[in-house]
């Protein structure tokens, strides 16, 4: 019996230790945020990388999600004559859940992986050691700009994603399902509350931070050449995706639990 339980216990302890190391890394990085020197050029570069260049993938994802959501909820609700709820379902689902989670996962795949690969390559080619020798703190130079850019740009992406997702639902509802355009928009607006949007943006901020954090963490601690960098990239995407789903529940609980 103990032979069966030991590997499970070991895996659990390893997971806790990894979480602890990630938390310490985050604490160190946050501790560096308030102290100079600051690197506004690097922050701006990361903002463009995360925000601007992720826009197409987030736009496509949310557009089709909104379209599918309208179609699915229409066919489902038609069974009990509640088709009029489609607009409300689309806007609440997009703002509260789908836009932040899908954007977070997409950015984890695109940006988190790139961060891990770039910083991992810098680690194995001694560029991070070179930064240290050149009197530049790697946390301040590499990690802090990415964390700031991640936490600030994902909410903006999600805001755009919210609008595009709702627009996708509108397209399907009006042009395929023959909804009245003005009525659809009125229902969308009437049942939307500020907290729906705000909760999604708070989630996005947290997800952006987590994506950047895991990308930087796994890249920073990669070793062993190309294989190590590849492993770091995989770990960054997997751990960011898991953390996004876990924190999605936690933040939802914070905002909407009775």
């Amino acid at each position: 019996m103990s032979g069966l339980l030991a590997p499970i216990g070991r895996a659990f302890l390893d997971a806790l230790a990894a979480l602890g190391r990630l938390a310490l890394f985050a604490g160190t990085a946050i501790g560096h945020m308030g102290r100079p020197p600051f690197y506004p050029r690097l922050i701006a570069r990361q903002m463009i990388e995360i925000g601007y260049f992720s826009l197409p993938v987030v736009a496509l994802t949310t557009l089709f999600s909104g379209m599918v959501l309208a179609l699915q909820s229409y066919t489902g609700f038609a069974r009990f004559s509640a088709e009029s709820a489609v607009a409300t379902v689309v806007v609440l689902s997009m703002t509260r859940e789908l836009a932040p989670v899908l954007a977070g996962l997409m950015v984890a795949g695109r940006v988190g992986a790139a961060m891990a690969a770039e910083i991992g390559t810098m680690r194995v080619t001694e560029q991070i050691d070179a930064l240290t020798v050149l009197s530049t703190d790697p946390y301040k130079y590499l990690v802090v700009p990415r964390l700031i850019a991640g936490a600030t740009m994902l909410p903006l992406l999600v805001l755009v994603g919210d609008i595009i997702g709702v627009f996708g639902g509108y397209l399907v509802s009006v042009y395929k399902l023959d909804f009245n355009a003005a009525g659809y928009l009125r229902r969308t607006w009437d049942y939307l509350e500020m907290i729906d949007v705000v909760s999604g943006l708070v989630k996005a901020g947290a997800f952006g931070f987590l994506v950047a954090l895991t990308g930087c963490y796994h890249g920073y601690h990669s070793k062993g050449g190309a294989q190590g960098v590849g492993q770091a990239t995989t770990n960054a995407v997997v751990s960011a995706s898991i953390l996004i789903l876990v924190f999605n529940y936690i933040i939802t609980e914070m905002f909407f639990a009775k």
Binding site: T125, E126, D129
Partner: peptide, 23 residues
């Protein structure tokens, strides 16, 4: 450094001037 450890994202002159600018 053994492998030179030049920063890929910066042009040569910025690599050389890195400490002067950042440090």
């Amino acid at each position: 450094f053994q492998g030179s450890a030049l920063f890929d994202s910066l042009p040569v002159w910025e690599n050389v001037a890195f400490r002067l600018i950042q440090g």
